[in-house]
Structure formats: C-alpha cells, structure tokens
C-alpha cells in the first residue's frame, strides 16, 4: 500500500508537471484539490487520464463517488487497489 502511494505521488508529479515538487512534499492525507496541493479541474482530467492509462481503471466522470476517490492520495490508493484487484 505504501508503495502504491509513492507510485501515485510520482505519477502526480510527472503527469501534472509539478517540476519543483518531490514525493515528500505531497502528504497522503491532504486534499489534492483546492486548499491542499492546490490542483485545479484541468489537473483532475489530466490525472484521471494518467491513472486510467497506468492502472486500467474506469473513472465515471458523472459519479459523485469519483470526487471522493480523488480527494487525497490515500483515497486514490484505496480506490485503485479495490478496482485493479485480480486484473
């Protein structure tokens, strides 16, 4: 699980061109959007695409749950491990 968190942080930095940031700058439980890391709606789309490509997960843009899955790195870890099981 810890490895997946590191992997996701690395993916966030690369996919979103956070050139001045390292994985240590991203707190797993902090909000990704708005107050915490400060990502915006274009980042949400970009990150969704990167996660989809890397973990072959389906993200439903209409679902309210999607917001919860994208709340923090920890939430993404839970979402990805639940959805990529057995694949």
């Amino acid at each position: 699980m810890a490895d997946l968190a590191v992997e996701i942080k690395q993916l966030i930095i690369e996919a979103l061109d956070l050139e001045d940031m390292t994985i240590d700058d991203i707190n797993s439980d902090e909000p990704l959007f708005g107050d915490g890391l400060g990502l915006d709606s274009i980042d949400a789309l970009e990150l969704g695409l990167a996660l989809k490509n890397k973990y072959q997960i389906t993200i439903d843009a209409e679902s309210e749950n999607t917001k919860k899955h994208f709340a923090s790195v920890s939430a993404l870890v839970a979402f990805i491990s639940a959805n990529s099981e057995g694949k």
Binding site: L16, D17, I42, L45, E46, L49, N53
Partner: peptide, 10 residues
C-alpha cells in the same frame, strides 16, 4: 491511438 492530454489540448 493515445488519448489527448487535457492540459496540452486546452
């Protein structure tokens, strides 16, 4: 056949 980067597109 890849999907377009939303940031790149915008």
């Amino acid at each position: 056949g890849d999907e377009l980067s939303p940031t790149g597109f915008s």
